[in-house]
Design a protein around this nucleic acid. Structure first.
Lengths: 221, 221
DNA sequence: CCAATAGTTTATCGTTTGATAAACTAACGA
DNA sequence: TCGTTAGTTTATCAAACGATAAACTATTGG
């Protein structure tokens, strides 16, 4: 018997560079906390990672620090800057832009881990949700309102500011898509299997209705 | 000094009839778990109730039994049977019926406690959410689809079954109202202050769009 | 080949937490 | 008035859990 280092089931005590180990811990934590919530035990997280529990504390002083890192990775890192340009590109029909955006957003952001940790964080009273919503209103919802205005032939936001109820119209579409994934990943019930078709219908319903209401509310130019 | 029983600050050791005590515990548990989640400690719940922690175990064998009772009180007890009739009353415009329903539903069901405990339960993997959604689809969403069909002049569900995407259209409105309260009570962000106006707009957006799509999807009679 | 560095584990501490047992006492009936 | 019933508290247990200290060992440079 020479080396048994690479034998299956005997691969413990795997020495990694600090950055690599830290990254693995964060990724494992995302998966684990998404399932178990933040009251999940550090011992079980360590077990899933194939390491011992005190090792976590070599890389993160406290459990809360690890959680903070999870937020960073998940909520700050996943917003794609090009989405903003996608929304405001008036060379394409607004309907197509919204469909493309929500297709991309659903794919990159609204994953199992994202949705669940987002909701866990909200219930825990963390301000990460409020900060994310500020970002969302600034980069998505307000621009969408401006595009709806343009589409409806209504005054630009610079002349007539976006009203609270108009913002709610943009939330309306967002809520439909978001809640679809809440049902899928939190309640774990059956949802429409064709995500593409679902998004198209949701956009059409919201947009048609929103256009009519916007014309009524804000008036045409 | 004769009696100090009713003096303020000295009212401990308050003896209650079992049913009364049990009721107070459940109501306190609803409030407490809504804030703290189900990982909230029994000692703190007892403290808020002004009783000692072991007393909880006189009335509920385990913490989980108490939680079960919270579900019962909150999710089973709050559905008003008359809501079904409200939806299907074709002597009134569908728009008015939907507005009235969601006004009532928001008032009676979508409270701070309800929303938060519902979400906590979902994340915990409890099947109460799936059971509630079955109830919702049967008593609300499917009937709404049938009414939209009638309004759109499309075939009745008996002839052409309700499709998955049609059900999603009913979910669309439901999601908008639900998510409004998620933002209010879970993320705790500013929302449109006029709930009435919000509901009216949401109904109009969804209904107009849904009518058009239903006509396209199912065809007219 | 050896010694120093540092990644990882073993052992353990102090609290927290759900739950139980036994003591205490307010209320009611004979 | 007194004794029994039962609602409530005090005291405590055992396991769970975040966190720390010290021992262990894989890797690297000379």
């Amino acid at each position: 018997m020479t080396e048994n280092k690479s034998q299956p089931g005997n691969d413990r005590r795997q020495r990694l560079a600090p950055t690599e180990r830290k990254q693995r811990i964060v990724e494992g934590a995302i998966q684990f906390f998404a399932e178990a919530g933040f009251s999940g035990q550090t011992r079980e997280l360590a077990h899933r990672l194939g390491i011992t529990q005190p090792l976590l504390y070599r890389y993160f002083p406290t459990k809360q620090d690890l959680i903070e890192q999870v937020y960073e990775e998940l909520f700050v890192g996943r917003w794609q800057p090009e989405w903003g340009a996608l929304i405001t590109d008036r060379s394409r029909p607004l309907r197509d832009r919204l469909i493309d955006f929500y297709r991309a957003y659903a794919n990159d952001a609204l994953t199992y881990e994202w949705i669940r940790i987002y909701m866990f964080a909200g219930l825990a009273g963390e301000d990460i949700n409020r900060r994310y919503i500020d970002l969302l209103e600034e980069r998505l919802l307000t621009p969408v309102c401006a595009e709806v205005r343009a589409e409806a032939g209504a005054p630009a936001p610079a002349d007539v500011p976006i009203g609270s109820l108009e913002l709610e119209a943009a939330w309306h579409l967002h809520a439909a898509v978001f809640y679809y994934f809440v049902r899928k990943y939190i309640y774990q019930t059956k949802v429409e299997p064709d995500l593409e078709a679902f998004i198209i219908d949701a956009v059409d319903r919201t947009l048609d209705g929103a256009l009519a209401i916007t014309r009524r509310m804000v008036g045409r130019e």
